[in-house]
Amino acid sequence: MKLIIIRHAVAADPVEGQRDSARPLTSAGKRKFSGVVKGLKRLGISFVHVLHSPLLRAVETADLLSELVEGELRSSGLMARAPTKALLEELSEERMALVGHEPYVSELVAWLATSDRKLARAFPFKKGGVVVLEGEPKPGGMHVAALLTPRQLRAIGRKR
């Protein structure tokens, strides 16, 4: 399978009294991530389903991806915590995207690509960054097909 792992776009700083889960994307974050989506589209990347964290910044990021989604966007609390076997069991479709948070997305890539989550630092994500994995969704069962920064994807999206 092809698995596209995405870190949420740039979100507002926390405001006093505000829950972390309520932090929205900034206007610039939305604009820049729309450029990332254009880049993904230009690369011919689309998804059957998207699994996203329920935190507002991930929900908004997933919504910006919706034009690339053929099937459903699904909420999952599993995307808001360290990766577990339960999350791997959800990875059933041929092309799926996951939208989540650091350090969990890096841990997930390390786990799937090397079977060692402690290697998460070898797979850093920028906000709005994308990693494409291919293979079987089990620890050590996938390889990194592409590691794309948001800047690269925006540049790809701008090219004629």
């Binding site: 829950r19 889960s21 309520a22 929205p24 964290s53 329920p54 935190l55 507002l56 929900v59 699904r74 909420s75 999952s76 609390g77 599993l78 808001a80 339960a86």
Partner: peptide, 14 residues
């Protein structure tokens, strides 16, 4: 857990 995640997400709708 999808139902719980949905309720969490709805709590933060703008």
């Amino acid at each position: 857990e999808r139902c719980g995640a949905l309720l969490d997400a709805l709590e933060e709708l703008p």
